[in-house]
Computed example of a mutant assay.
Amino acid sequence: MEFTIGGRLEVRMTPADVGKRVSVRRVADVPDEGAKFTDTVGVLTSWDDEVLSVTTKSGESVRIPESALVAGKVVPRAPARRRGPAASFGELTRTAARAWQPVESELLGDWRLRAAGGFTRRANSVLPLGDPGLPLGDALARVRSWYGERDLPPYIQTATGAEDTQERLCADLEEHGWRREVTAEVRIAALAPVGDLDVDISAVRLTREPDDAWLSRYQRFETPGPHVLKVLGSGPSVWFATVPGDGPAGAPPAAIGRCVVDGRWAGFMAVEVGQEYRRRGLATAVMTALARTALDEGASAAWLQVEADNEGARALYDGMGFTLHHSYHHFRPA
């Protein structure tokens, strides 16, 4: 990282650069093995009262006193991704939302409040794709009230690595006492290579609705009530994959998966393999079978969401050619 002009470190940004991507160097809070400086890259979300706030790609808001600032400059965004299909944040986020629809929703300006009886954070969180039409403090109070009326905790889903406005919202939520609970990656890939994988899919059974066997393997609920079935069944063209197990009658299947085809996009969700059936390539078989069906329906691009700490799933998707598009986070009042 270089900040020199004529051999000197310089700060080449001002409060007028709020909202831009910056790279800053500051004196380390706790020097580590002789290191004197710490570098931070992210969106400059505020510069008030002699303190800078920079939101990093992970969604963390880093506060830096001016007195600790050694160097800083505005930097361009990372170059456009060359692998996988081109996709804007808005297109991909709306596609993902159509594939996992809530039981009820309400607009607050450009924010969509979503609820589904508490079944998954995605279906029970605010999707903020613009201005709520109110000052942020008032909007957050409305969010708390709306979810409180439904006996649900209030969550807001934000993103980093996609749009500066989303990254600024992450920092603003922290300023208002909201804290991130979970982070997931949104990944994309060309669909054809997934469907072309040389794997045996003869055991994969595809249906339009989840049967009792499929539901018995899915681990995201205790009782599959109507709200669960409504969310799982939502989307333009929904497919469920099941690989029967070799256990006794009534035992959960070996593997399952879900795919929603929406125009050029195929979204993969709920890919799960029983512990005793792992390392047999069943997750790959499930996704390949679903991908071939999606290709038959005219899709050409794939997306999925995976929690950032799920190393096994991330390695699987790496091997299939999925690359990071952006990350999303669920914030909740502390």
Results as ranks from 00 to 15, higher is better:
P135T: 10
G117N: 06
E106R: 14
R82F: 12
P128T: 00
G118W: 12
R81S: 15
T95C: 13
A116F: 11
R122L: 03
E106C: 04
A123N: 10
G118D: 07
F89Q: 06
R114A: 06
G84R: 03
R121C: 04
G118A: 00
P128N: 03
W100P: 01
T93S: 12
A80L: 13
R83Q: 12
E104K: 13
P85M: 06
A123D: 05
L129G: 09
S88G: 14
L129N: 12
R114P: 02
L107T: 10
L107P: 08
A99E: 14
R122C: 02
W111K: 05
N124C: 08
P102R: 02
W111T: 00
R98W: 05
A97V: 13
D110H: 11
V103D: 08
A116G: 05
G109F: 00
G84H: 01
P128E: 05
G133F: 05
A86R: 15
R82E: 08
F89K: 10
A96N: 15
W100C: 04
R82Y: 08
R83P: 00
P128Q: 08
G130C: 08
L92C: 03
G130E: 09
P135F: 04
A115N: 03
R112V: 15
L136E: 00
R122G: 09
L107H: 14
L127Y: 07
T120R: 03
D110Y: 09
F89E: 14
R114K: 08
A123E: 10
R98P: 11
G84I: 07
T93Y: 12
P132M: 05
A99G: 14
A115C: 11
R82N: 05
L107E: 13
V103G: 01
L113R: 01
L113S: 01
F119M: 11
Q101P: 02
Q101L: 10
R122T: 00
F119T: 04
G84A: 11
G133S: 12
A97N: 12
L129S: 02
R112Y: 07
L127Q: 13
S125Q: 00
A99Q: 15
F119W: 15
R94E: 14
G137A: 13
L108F: 01
F119E: 04
A87N: 07
A116L: 02
D131G: 11
Q101K: 14
D110P: 07
L92N: 11
T95W: 01
